[in-house]
Design a protein around this nucleic acid. Structure first.
Lengths: 232, 232
DNA sequence: CGTTTCTTTGAGGATATTCAATTTATGTGG
DNA sequence: CCACATAAATTGAATATCCTCAAAGAAACG
């Protein structure tokens, strides 16, 4: 990918918002490219955070593994998202593992280079606060949901969130354009794949969603899910 | 409180770490003082975030209320902690309500003044990233705990976290130096006050903790709690 | 000293998990 | 392209954890 191509990718990244064209070009020039194949990991939880990443295209699932081997899905990420950058700036090991859900491309900068960029373009630091702040909000919302809502409601909210973040409108309804297994949903909503399966089966029979294994998940009647999500 | 006094308070605030004495004095000069009485709120969830705060002394509990009136304790805060600052910088309404657990004092800066300070002293923006990053880590840890652990384990972890953050070593054990009700613990661990009560009763009988109503909570045998927290 | 608030404790029950078995899809090698 | 192997999903039954409901006891407050 040449510099102008990279630059146009970076234009859509909130982290670099407000930078001039030539500044973006500078940033783009100093990036390394990291192609991603499906199921590949960008880095491993626990590794030293030597580089920060921006996802150019593709999709990632951010997994966190507990000491006893259980898994929690922290979030899904798409083009323009920061990956691992907080860990770099805080100089701590990566707290989670990003797994590619499809082929993609990440741009990376080394830790010192990132620090230097933020110093040179203070706007970046302010943007970082905004981005990270948004992450906090999302985490607090999930915490609240797990703490106060029943499983069915949490699953509904999660599907709606995925749909809002990355859904594509089709004739059949809103489609979630990447594979989401029962296990994934279970790890997002703090339940078991069995409960997710039962819930989706029920919704499938009621015509609210369509969830065959091969195809992507389709929400046929979002408003029905909203009802479930808002009052269980 | 005069400027030197304020300055010495700010010296212990990570958000202002790395600033020179005279720079800190500048920051201190532009602060407003906000005394806090027990049970008073610093601001209300949902209000416009016109000011960011630093807690000079005292303790706060940060509460988040759901649309249907349930409450979640997001965290406890002590001297040096940032309160509401993320919301100010992101220009969103305060997402939670900080309640004073004891008399205290907060210093505040208006939104434009904060922005100006960060521009003048870029170090502050970098510090902010560090502080907020730490908040993310904490939230992710709690999310993982609620998602994967049983109640007893979560209560144990929570007590240990409180002890680590603010515990005082006494002859009887480690004391948590502010009031924590069963309800509070329930809202921190995503359970009911009944379950917390039963659990603490059991631990009290086993001599692991001491938890009369009047006195502060005392952990007599932290290692026993660690055992429970690590493997339930 | 009465009132209010917080805590304890019991009994019953609901939600969701665990365990187990089957069905359905996906992928692979012949 | 089919047959087999593997992985994902479904579904049932039994159980556990934790919640809800209820009532009484203990501490704090004025």
């Amino acid at each position: 990918m040449d510099i102008p191509a990279r630059t146009s990718v970076l234009q859509r990244v909130p982290f670099f918002g407000g930078l001039e064209e030539d500044q973006l070009a500078t940033v783009a020039r100093e990036a390394h490219e990291r192609p991603l194949k499906k199921d590949e990991t960008l880095f491993q939880q626990g590794e030293e955070a030597t580089h920060g990443y921006v996802l150019g295209w593709g999709r990632l699932r951010l997994d966190q593994t507990t000491p006893d081997g259980q898994n929690v899905v922290l979030r899904y990420m798409g083009p323009g998202d920061l990956v691992g950058t907080v860990a770099v700036l805080r100089r701590i090991p990566f707290p989670a593992t990003p797994v590619a859900l499809e082929d993609g491309l990440a741009l990376s900068w080394s830790a010192p280079r990132l620090a230097e960029l933020m110093e040179r373009f203070p706007k970046i630091a302010l943007n970082a606060i905004g981005v990270i702040g948004g992450r906090i909000e999302e985490l607090q919302a999930r915490l609240q949901a797990i703490a106060t809502q029943r499983v069915e409601r949490r699953i509904a909210s999660t599907l709606l969130r995925l749909a809002n973040q990355s859904g594509r409108r089709t004739e059949a309804g809103v489609e979630i354009p990447f594979p989401v297994s029962r296990q994934d949903l279970a790890e997002m909503t703090a339940t078991t794949l069995h409960t997710v399966s039962r819930t989706l089966s029920a919704w499938d029979q009621q015509g609210i969603v369509e969830s065959r294994r091969s195809s992507h998940l389709v929400i046929r009647h979002p408003h029905r899910l909203v009802e479930i999500a808002e009052q269980g």
